[in-house]
Nucleic acid binder design. Structure first.
Lengths: 152, 152
DNA sequence: CATAATGTCTATCTAACTGGTAGGGATAAG
DNA sequence: CTTATCCCTACCAGTTAGATAGACATTATG
């Protein structure tokens, strides 16, 4: 199960990304319309800003807007931001690679091999599908080469 | 990342499943050869026994053997035993279904839709691959209908 | 029967994490 | 100057992870 924090982040991002270009949403508005604890949401939006996904305006008539276009923000990227590495084993993570303490051979490890298959399958979805795909309900797995579109 | 408990369980199961028919492995042997804390492993093996996957013999020359054949025990089943539901969202879990607190429509939920795709992909691997597949390094995705072999 | 080696069960402990809450401070509009 | 907003940090209660400990039950063997 993903954390509430991550789930809130997706709700907020989808709300912000579906605003008309340039129109900001305040944390209070998002919190109210999506039943998210306000101060908790503020932390989340701040994280998204620090990650370069959102931009913010302070003061009266402030709020949040997308900094990067919604079709460049993948589900995997957001999830990693709040959950850390998505790999089921440390030895399968690209960014947070760590060998298992008592590993003899990664190539021969059955657990690594099988979980690698599961991870590949999951990653192919999460790292290719973007906020824009979700909002437009874009079909999945139709166009060839969809695995690596704008969202890296 | 999966828990150490689950990882230890897979190590132990693969060790037991690769023993010659009828030959038991003791918790102490497994703990030593795989660098697993002995008492911790005992709890794990007990869980696997209670789940009907392993059988045990007590007393001198005791130990653990497979109760069900290795080609009927899927990775998903073992993982669920130690990690609980694998679904990324409660509303995607078959066994532990729960609607999101403030859900308006599951059919319209973009988050549910996208995570459903990721979960499907991952589940297709985990619920089809068995301990025997892992031990024999059986190829994956070759034979049609492999999704539902002996392991349900 | 005694002993030693095993599995079985339950309790306990510490550190980290989850899911918040709280209270300011900085900034900008009007 | 007031008010609404974002920004930042600290804190807290409950749960979970990852064990550790100790006693009890069962069985093979001498």
């Amino acid at each position: 199960m993903i954390s509430n924090k991550a789930k809130y982040a997706f709700r907020a991002l989808l709300a912000i990304a579906s605003q008309p270009e340039g129109e900001a949403l305040t944390s209070a508005e998002i919190a109210r319309t999506h039943s998210i604890p306000h101060k908790f949401l503020e932390q989340i939006l701040l994280d998204l800003k620090k990650a370069g996904i959102l931009d913010s305006r302070r003061g009266k008539s402030g709020g949040y807007v997308m900094l990067r276009p919604a079709d460049t923000v993948s589900f995997g990227e957001v999830l990693r931001l709040f959950e850390g590495p998505l790999a089921p084993l440390p030895c399968l993570s690209r960014n947070a690679y760590r060998r298992c303490e008592d590993c003899v051979s990664e190539a021969a490890c059955e657990i690594r091999r099988e979980f690698g298959r599961a991870y590949d399958a999951s990653r192919q979805v999460l790292d290719s599908r973007t906020l824009a795909d979700a909002l437009h309900n874009n079909p999945y797995g139709v166009e060839p080469g969809h695995e690596v579109r704008r969202a890296g």
